[in-house]
Amino acid sequence: MALMSAHRLSTTSGCGVPADVPRLGYVRGRRSDAPGVWTLDIEMADDAPCDFAPGQFNMLTAFGVGEAAISISGAPGGERLIHTIRDVGPVSHALANLAPGDPIGVRGPFGVGWPMATPGSDVLIIAGGLGLAPLRPSIYDILARRDAFGAVTLLYGSRRPEDIVFHAEVEAWRREKKINIELTVDHAGVDWRGHVGVVTGLLPRVQLDPSRAIALLCGPEVMMRFVGAALTEQGLDATKIFVSMERNMKCAIGHCGHCQLGPTFICRDGPVFTYERMRPLMSVKEL
């Protein structure tokens, strides 16, 4: 009496697989990028990783433990999927502690990523903490066609010098001089020779031309609120400021209801939104 369908309906991610069932991958590399922060290289079992846009995320499954939304931190078009994970809850702990050779489930990519900057525009990238991870694909993208843009600046705030993720790589970018880089930390000892203070404190160091700049922000929501406010104060239109939001994501396709913020589903309509769209929503406590 039961009817079965041999083929699934159109419930697929961009990759042509059911959106609610993970694909199998294997961890091929694992390295620490900061205390408690691990980057996994994942090879898909069947074929190449799905194409993704910088700023999108995947749902990663630690089999038998659970699933978590993790932004993609590697370059688009690579052979491997790169994800950077903070070991903070049961699922992320299990994911961050997967060893090379271990299986891992991958659903995605999901969501709306960073906008493509108009050629010639200045790009201001402002990251806080692990917020650099979802911005890194954009930085790779910009570096790959650096001539298409005007001034490119990365302002990056961290907790302590040792918490700066991808620190060696950031220093390598700095040496290449293709993008201007300013790092700041909240707390530092005498060995630290960089800035100490909040990331908004770095803004006066940027020659911001509101007519040709866009800003990409990712970090704690409080940080993005203050940076967004400071940038608009400096004349940058709120539609040219983009923020990557975080909420509890379960299904990643706008069906489970968990990640709602006001009328938006962060998983489906975001995670990247204009600051103009998010400003009124971020300002309401516990929305």
Binding site: M1, A2, L3, M4, S5, R8, L9, P18, V21, P22, R23, L24, Y26, A45, F63, G101, P103, G105
Partner: peptide, 18 residues
């Protein structure tokens, strides 16, 4: 899903209805 060798076989639930 079931662990087999070093991998995992993942089976999507049947889509069915009475």
């Amino acid at each position: 899903a079931q662990r087999e060798g070093g991998g995992v076989n993942i089976h999507a639930a049947d889509i069915y209805a009475e």
